[in-house]
Simulated scan of single mutants.
Amino acid sequence: MNPQPPAPTCVRHPNRPTGLACTRCGRPSCAECLRPAAVGQHCVDCLRQDQRNTPRVRTVAGAPVARSPIPYITYALIVANVVIYAVTAVQSKSLVDNYYRSTFFARWMLVPDLVADGQWVRVLGAGFLHWGPIHLALNMFALWVVGRSLEPALGRTRYLAVYLVALLGGSAASMIFQDPTSAAAGASGAVYGLFGAITVLLIRVRQNPNQMLILIGINIFISFSLPGISLSGHLGGLIAGTLATLGVLFLPEWLHAKSQEAAHSIGWAAIAAVALVDLVAIGAAVASLA
């Protein structure tokens, strides 16, 4: 009498005999390693392979759809601005006149003559300073409103890059057109850049951009009308953010990019090109003041 052959064992758990098998690959698998499928049951290895081979859903900008809808970069930027404001308020011992007697504020506010003297940190640092709580609240509210829609569409890294490029664009314009001895501060240049970016996004997805265009027009009119507002910084940020986002959303199509990877590279090249123009403009302003 011939002995019965041993029962097959699960490929992932060799100590578990099983009479079941994956209907896709045919390998024996225990009940723990199988999942119901439209036809039969598939093992977890086959399901994992399917997930790797399935292209991820992407936004109109080519960014993978984030697993979490929370706009982490937007919140991080808001926190950074609020924390820096709190530091200046503590140093000055005033919530309203936080710029008064604050060494932090004095070292970071954008003064073209001081940048030309080698204090380059002011070009970036000034974008995180604010003249009092109302200035801070207006900018952070605008950042929160726009960032929640723009960050998921562009993807976190490119969204942050556009923000920083717009910030530098605002600083570059201030360096060129601002009185060399005057001071400027605020995230307004970066926020204006995001206004331009979301307008480009609305056009790309074929939605009506009129509300954003009206909002931008109103803000530019206010910048013209009220004294003490850096119009050049606002316009510089607006132009830089708009051009960078045009490069991300439209340039790959205009250049007939043949793959998602090529489109991704073109978008980053556009952002880098705008950043380079910002830096060249800042360098030219420094050279003229030297």
Rank of each mutant, 00 (worst) to 15 (best):
Q51Y: 04
G189W: 02
G196S: 10
P209I: 05
Q51L: 15
A197S: 14
Y163V: 04
P5F: 11
P71D: 06
A173Y: 06
P55N: 12
S149M: 09
T54C: 11
T18Y: 08
R24G: 14
A31N: 11
P28A: 09
S68A: 11
L77E: 02
V11C: 10
I78R: 02
A89W: 07
L194C: 02
S225T: 09
Q4C: 06
L202V: 03
Q211N: 09
A284K: 06
R35V: 14
R27L: 15
P69N: 13
Q178C: 05
R56G: 15
S288Y: 06
A173K: 03
A185I: 00
A185P: 01
A142L: 14
S68C: 11
G236Y: 12
R67C: 03
A66Y: 02
A173N: 04
G147L: 01
W108I: 06
I239Q: 01
C30P: 09
V191R: 02
D50G: 14
G147Q: 01
Q91A: 14
G127L: 02
R107E: 08
A166Y: 05
V274Q: 04
A106V: 06
G127Q: 03
Y99A: 10
F177K: 07
I216R: 04
V277F: 07
V11S: 10
M212K: 01
A86R: 09
P3G: 09
L249S: 05
T23A: 10
I176D: 03
G193K: 05
Y72I: 06
V191T: 11
L202N: 07
A284D: 09
L243S: 10
R107N: 12
A61W: 01
P209Y: 03
L213D: 10
A106S: 13
A7G: 03
T245I: 03
G40D: 13
L20D: 11
W268F: 06
T103E: 12
K258W: 00
R52A: 15
S225R: 12
F128K: 01
S288G: 13
H135P: 00
I282D: 08
A38Y: 05
R56M: 15
A263M: 06
V162G: 00
N81G: 15
L136C: 11
N2V: 09
G62M: 08
G19A: 13
W131F: 14
V87N: 14
V191F: 02
A66I: 02
L167S: 03
P28S: 11
W144Y: 14
W268N: 13
A76V: 06
C43I: 08
A89P: 12
P5W: 08
I70G: 05
A61S: 15
G40P: 11
G228P: 03
